[in-house]
Design a protein around this nucleic acid. Sequence first.
RNA 1: GGGGUCGUAGCUCAGCUUGGUUAGAGCGCCUGCCUGUCACGCAGGAGGUCGCGAGUUCGAGUCUCGUCGGCCCCGCCA
Length: 588
Amino acid sequence: MSTYKKRTHTCGELRKQDIGKTVTLTGWIDVRRDLGGVVFIDLRDRYGKTQVVFAPQHNQQAYDVAQGLRSEYVISVTGNVEGRPADTENPDLPTGEIDVVGKELAILNKSETPPFPIEDEIDVSEDLRLKYRYLDLRRSAVQKNLLIRHCAYQVTRSYFDRNGFIEIETPILMKSTPEGARDYLVPSRIHRGKFYALPQSPQTYKQILMVSGFDRYFQIVKCFRDEDLRADRQPEFTQIDVEMSFADEDDVFRTTEGLIAELWKEILGIEIARPFRRLTYKDAMELYGTDKPDTRFALHIADCSSVVANSGFRVFSDTVRKGGVVAGFAVPALSNYTRNQLDGLTDLAKSLGAGGLVYFKHHSDRIESSVDKFVSPDEVKAIAQKIGSKNGDLGLIISGTWQKALTILGTLRLEMASRLDLIPEGHWNFLWITDFPLLEFSEDDKRFVAVHHPFTSPKPEDVPLLDADAATARARAYDLVLNGNEIAGGSIRIHSSELQSKMFGLLGIGPEEAKQKFGFLLDAFKYGAPPHGGIAYGFDRIVMLLTGQKSIRDVIAFPKTSSAMSLMDDSPSTVDKKQLDELHIRIL
RNA sequence: GGGGUCGUAGCUCAGCUUGGUUAGAGCGCCUGCCUGUCACGCAGGAGGUCGCGAGUUCGAGUCUCGUCGGCCCCGCCA
């Protein structure tokens, strides 16, 4: 039994046609306007706002209580729906044609003055919002993000269910495995000195589910990586994890494109054209200087190595001789860039590891370069032609190893697009990146590490390369990129224990260690593992893009700061010695 | 681990360059007045560990060093 009058309507639904009804609303005081003889309040819940008016002639007692109302008090109010007097309607509110005339008013709870107003447009520091997250989440702008996130869950579950995928939960307490990100560890109380790890992803489990014959699996699942944070990276985040048996790249792509199209259609009402464009990793790097290109603007990079191979400028010719690249791109109509601005770009390039930045200004009568002392006018002209520079453009040239020079150009490309406001809104440029390298050499560990993960299959035609020239072998791995954001990644997996063992060998994981760390997977593969592959989507990033937010913190109910703290509950925190003792742990 | 930037009233900021009277503004809050407001209006008022700690100085919000915290980036993120 309720001790207060329960609502008959929400604060967002009363309209003209409800005039004459006696209603009860519950909610929070959004704002109070006390005009002396009459008190207006806007009552808010997650559905909207409705104005309630209190005056002595309507009900003296309610009016008296109303004068004591303050922001964020929780009330229940009963009264009649009336049309507003002429010229007092509020066209900005859906409920702006009516008032509720307050006859009975109960304060269900008082509130302290909130540290910031509960409004859509607030100018307040993010740490304050995070400390009082419960108040931040009361704001409709933030609620809208979580509502869209909710819709994305429903669309995803419905889509995979309709397409024969089975949702299966996998353990949160699992075996710590080498490779990849740093694990979050959970000490075992029962087994002294042993630890579980929180999953970086359910990778091994979903592959084993394929061995078990589940054929098509999906899960919306929390993953944990103990690495430094970014605007689009949290230590715990949500993936849509998918795995399919008897599937190749085209099957995974088709499934993915169907999901994406449905999400965009259902949530934004936008038709996404399919199939998505595909670009190899090599082409993406050489054209955009990144493996997650934003293709909403051009500024294409071009290789100039061939025209500077015999340059008198030793930086260029030596780079080419050593197998590196000299490449650059033209920025339209920027030949008037100042020395100061160019010095800034040079500093940026150097901070990214470049030896320097060569630039030229493409004037109508000549091309003025920063290396005129070393490079002939004809050569500068040839470079300009190579990168497609036109009269009035600014050319930016970087030399270095293939990876480094192109990556720096990729960053400069984004920087210039941002400075010149070249990135159009309202475009959804989905792009598959394919043919990633299988391995890369880790200078830190002095060994190969997997670019994607150790279970990724090499391309069949590149398998012989594993013995001959492993660094050049390509993987059956793919990423889905949207407007410069990596929103999904996956691969066709290795399903033979022999090839998997060989892969471990290349990664410097000996038979003993492989057996100890991944024996369960290798064993499973001995019992009829189907060919399989899959993909995992960065759910938070997708919702961030669907909601137009700049950080995934804005689409996560209780996110952590960039130093991985939760300001609301102050975690991580110290624990009692007794807890540590039980876990056989001592703080060093 | 590194680079950049910010930290002054409940909130958003000014003051710092060039150290010096009682640290200001807007919003919010409190009190009073006000019967159609919706950024209500008018009048009055309260409110400060200048993030924290050292140092320089006759004197530090201001200069120096350290430290803590927010945000962005590099490294890192199979």
